[in-house]
Each structure stands twice: as C-alpha cells, then as structure tokens.
Simulated scan of single mutants.
Amino acid sequence: MNPHHNPSRRQLLARCLAVAVALPAFSLQARAQGRPVLKAGDQKGGLRALLEAAGGLEGLGYDIQWSEFPAAAPLAEALNAAAVDSGPIGDAPLIFALAAGTRVKAIGANRSDSYGTAVLVRPDSPLKTAADLKGKSIATNRGSIGHYVTLKAITAAGLKPEEVNIRFLAPADAKLALTQGSVDAWATWEPYTALAEVSRHARVLVSGRGLLPGLSYLAATDAAIAAKRPVLQDFLQRVVKAQLWSYRNVDAYSAALARIIGIPPEAAKLQFERRQQRWVSIDAQVIADQQGTADFYRQVGLIKQPLDVKGTFDTGFGVAG
C-alpha cells in the first residue's frame, strides 16, 4: 500500500480512460469554433445528474466534455494525467491525490450528513458493532471515503488497522463480494448505500455520522485553474445554484436522479434527503477539518509524510447562491 507510487503519465491516462465513460463527440468541433472546453470528471449520481435535472446547463458559453468514473480514485488519476480539468472528490481521496503529487486544488467545498458513508453487512450477518470487525474482511476502494470510514470506525472501536483484512475492490465488485459472502463487510458511500438498503441486500453496521466531517470538494488541476478560471467559476456557480434548486424540488429532483443514474426512485430520494448537501465557503473550519483527515491518514500510516493542506485550497472561487 504505497500512495506515493506514481505511475507514468501514459499509464495513468490509459487507466483512467479505461474506466471513464467519455462523451467527447462535440469537443473537436467546439475547439474548431474557438469555444472553451471544460473536461469535467464526474462520479455516479454526481454533478452531471444534478445540473441536468436542474436545467443548469442552459446558456453555456463553453462546452463540457464529461467523463464518468466509478469512484474517486480513478477520477484522481485522471486529474493527475490531465485527462480531466475538474471533478468532485471527497476529503479522503483528495488527501491521497495530493500525497501522490497530483497538482490539483479544491476550488469549492460542500458539507453533508455522513450517514450514507458506511460499513455495510449482509442483513443476516451476526456482526453488530465496529468491534465485531476484528479479523473480518472488508471490501472498499483504496483511498476512498469508504476506506476512510473503515479506519475511523475500527480505530474508534479500539482496533488497529492490521486487525482487519481490507480488500480493495471497485463498488460493483465489492457489492458482489458481499452478497456472495466472500467478504464480511463493504465500506461504501451514496448512492450505493441507499441502493443496498432499499434492495435489502445489506444493512448499515457503522455509519460515518460522528466519525467524518462530511466534506467533499470540487477540485481542479493547477493548469485548468490557470487557463480556464472564468469557466471553472461559472461551472461551480451553476452547481451551487442547482443544489439549491434540488432542495426546493425534492420529488422532481429525486425522480430525475433515479432516471439519469438508473436506480429506484426510493433509493434516489433516500440518499438525497439524508445527505442534506450544502456548498460552503472554504473557511478556517474547512481547512482545519481537512488537516485532521490528513493527520489521521499519517497516523495510520497511509501517507508517509506530514501534509500541510492549506496550500491545496484556492479560496478565490465564490459559492454565493
């Protein structure tokens, strides 16, 4: 487990394009016409679904080339390889990206209820508490918020990281491993948690509520910030406005989200309503909470050097609704 391992740019680009579902059909024409192009990375149920549902993509002065990733780690690799300019990323995956030398900054921050970032077990599992995970196998993505909540949960229960067996699997593979019984638990995030609950494939053993600060970010590469700052500012502002719209139109947004990402409406509404996501200013508390995450990862040995997070934020982007 070495977050400092930094594959070549060519390897990273190949890997991220292998997992991304890119929609670049109009990008060459757009460049020919001189319109800026924002290469926007996304995760399932993320910014594209929100913007489309809210009508937030109307009247753009630039074109968007979307690439969807199954988790934050491959999105971070795409940022590192300059395959995307920007994308949504949780606090813990951002720490890994920065520790690996990715030239990226957080330009917008949001807070949400962390309940849906959770360790799940099968409905019939005998496990009742985080302490019961001793000696058990837990599937999650390396460096993800699922990885983070796993370590937070077990250390809070008095266990050491080496007392559990963490298996690094992508969400689809982790879900299958749990349902088939080849792992004891699956640490994941929304909308996967809500989907597992609604389908009764799993129950929450430990939630992130009270364990995690509930932070995630819109990150952008240093190169994109330098070359496309007005585009990034406009994009962030559209996301903030779309988020405000979504909470005024819960039923409409939940139905649109379910349709766009292909999950049952009740799962879409469950994860949306309990997250209560709000975009916030990058203030001293945000930076302090992010420093706490970096310090925790250093404490448990997942990053090898202390990381001062202050320089990893660009506070010049507004999030006024």
Rank of each mutant, 00 (worst) to 15 (best):
N2I: 10
H4E: 14
S8G: 14
R15P: 01
R15F: 04
L17I: 08
Q29L: 14
Q33D: 15
P36N: 07
A40S: 14
G41D: 04
E52T: 13
G56W: 10
G59I: 09
Y62K: 02
D63L: 09
D63N: 10
Q65E: 15
P70C: 03
A71D: 13
P74H: 05
A78H: 05
L79H: 01
N80W: 03
P93F: 01
L94T: 09
I95M: 13
A99H: 12
A100R: 14
R103V: 07
I107M: 07
I107K: 03
A109N: 01
S112N: 08
S114V: 00
T117W: 06
A118F: 00
P126N: 08
D132V: 09
L133N: 10
L133F: 08
T140S: 13
G143V: 04
H147I: 01
K152R: 15
L159W: 05
E163D: 13
E163A: 04
K175L: 14
T179W: 11
W189I: 00
V198W: 04
V198M: 02
R200P: 00
R200S: 14
R203S: 05
R209E: 14
P213H: 04
L215E: 03
D222T: 07
I225K: 10
I225Q: 02
A226W: 05
Q233F: 00
L236D: 03
Q237T: 12
S246F: 00
L257M: 14
G262R: 08
L270Y: 05
Q277S: 15
V280W: 09
I287Y: 00
Q305Y: 09
K310Y: 06
T312I: 11
F313M: 09
D314K: 00
A320I: 13
